[in-house]
Design a protein around this nucleic acid. Structure first.
Lengths: 112, 112
DNA sequence: CATAATACTTCGCCTGTCAAGGTATATTTT
DNA sequence: AAAATATACCTTGACAGGCGAAGTATTATG
């Protein structure tokens, strides 16, 4: 029971921003956290995740820096910018609205 | 207050099938009906609508026939096939599941 | 008679997802 | 010690769906 690409689409950015609002984090961890939250039902594909980071950073919604771990693989941490914070709340509202409209339109018993 | 393309994506087929389950209809009318249902907030773009018809017909979920109106522009009517009916219910379930997961994941207060 | 409304179609662009492949380090298993 | 697994990141190219734009044709309206 996964989510079709076309249904998740448009929500990855919001998901990532939402995660980062809890504090800076990095790709691998965010994805594991998603897995955990969904009880193993869902995780972002790596390519999707990293292309989302790139997109978000290019549009100024997040910024990044390299962690200084003494050991283990290097990690690139991300922070939400003020613009990103604002964008997150807008995206959430968009999602709430979209959900309502889609729910209304999907129903087979038209009020028509 | 429209819906972003990426949020509607993956739901157009379901919306169309849902509409057609009320009885055969045609593109223009379905779109007007969507406009009405949403109080003018939303309608599918023509190109989106007609490419969805094509996709749905090619995958055997709907079939079409020309109306025999004596007057006015010709209309191509669509019918949901049994496979289409089944697909509709599956899509609706997928949507319900996706909604829950997305709702869970976009929240900023991680249970993490 | 011009404009709008009805009705459908096609082309090509854009964007986001993803499969596949690659790099590098640390830990655990055999 | 070698192999396998886990951690961690990155890139490329393909694919699919939404959509802007443009076109065709008929009927109604002002």
């Amino acid at each position: 029971m996964s989510i079709a690409s076309d249904l998740i689409r448009g929500n990855t950015d919001t998901i990532i921003l939402g995660h980062l609002l809890n504090g800076d984090s990095y790709g691998y961890k965010i994805n594991k956290s998603i897995l955990q939250k969904t009880d193993g039902l869902y995780e972002l594909k790596e390519a999707t995740l990293y292309s989302a980071f790139k997109r978000l950073e290019e549009s100024g919604l997040i910024s990044s820096y390299w962690g200084d771990e003494a050991t283990g693989a290097r990690r690139r941490y991300y922070t939400v910018t003020p613009a990103g914070r604002q964008a997150y709340f807008n995206m959430k509202t968009d999602w709430q609205n979209a959900k309502e409209i889609i729910d209304l339109l999907i129903e087979e018993d038209a009020g028509l």
